[in-house]
């Protein structure tokens, strides 16, 4: 196991509330399905970072910051997460107040990410002020399907499917962030990842809690298994997605 993954598991994955009804299911799922995928994706990320570090200029940092500026913040926060909140009927809202509060907290986090990416661009002297970013296409476009694609249209995801998404996917984010923080000796790049480190780990814990507490029966567990099967196949799969223009 990669040392970063081992550290992540020891700190955040294996600690389990004694007697948690869904813990056995979560841990089995982790060992059989999540770990191999986490390991593969982490290795890919580490390889990408190593390649970036061998380059003689900092263009990759600029590209990361521009893409980060576009990817985080209002785009996904407002569109995707507000859709999740609004998928709950008004009469039922009070039953989901904690979920709403966590999404509100996430919107705050997401907006902070953009500021940190902008801070890198400003700190490195790549832009003079944030207004200049409005003229740079990379800072304003977003190809990920979660933002504007069809998956945005289906907010009525089962809460336990969402928990699986939080648990599996956000662990990948946590691992990538850990890798950048450990491998890149640049205070601005480290700084760029700190708000995401906090946010992604919160999501991971949200998923971990829901799996441990609510996934004690086959009826509840199948939502998680279905979602994880989809995520492993479609999103976190082991092959890179085809690049635009590569399809014949």
């Amino acid at each position: 196991m990669h040392p970063i993954l081992e550290e992540f598991c020891d700190k955040w994955v294996w600690p389990t509330m004694p007697g948690a009804p869904g813990a056995e299911f979560r841990l089995k799922l982790t060992r059989e399905k999540c770990l191999p995928a986490w390991e593969a994706i982490l290795e890919r990320t580490v390889h990408d970072i190593e390649e970036e570090l061998t380059s003689n200029d900092e263009e990759w940092k600029r590209q990361h910051a521009l893409r980060g500026y576009a990817a985080e913040g209002v785009h996904m926060s407002i569109k995707q997460m507000s859709a999740q909140l609004l998928s709950v009927d008004i009469g039922e809202q009070e039953n989901y107040i904690d979920l709403q509060r966590m999404r509100a907290r996430q919107i705050w986090d997401e907006c902070k990410h953009s500021k940190l990416h902008a801070d890198v661009l400003l700190g490195k002297g790549w832009v003079k002020n944030e207004r200049e970013l409005m003229s740079i296409a990379q800072a304003n476009v977003q190809p990920l399907p979660a933002y504007f694609g069809p998956s945005m249209m289906f907010p009525h995801i089962h809460p336990l499917a969402r928990a699986a998404q939080n648990y599996y996917t956000e662990a990948n984010a946590c691992l990538g962030i850990m890798a950048y923080i450990k491998m890149v000796d640049d205070p601005l790049v480290v700084h760029e990842h700190l708000s995401q480190r906090d946010e992604e780990l919160m999501h991971f814990m949200e998923g971990k809690f829901q799996l441990d507490f609510y996934c004690a029966t086959p009826e509840s567990q199948h939502h998680v298994e279905d979602a994880l099967g989809y995520l492993l196949h479609q999103i976190g799969g082991f092959g890179r997605s085809p690049q635009p223009g590569a399809a014949k």
Partner: peptide, 11 residues
């Protein structure tokens, strides 16, 4: 009970 410790994301 140590439950809160297992799900806290802030070291």
């Amino acid at each position: 009970c140590t439950a809160c410790l297992m799900y806290c994301p802030a070291a």
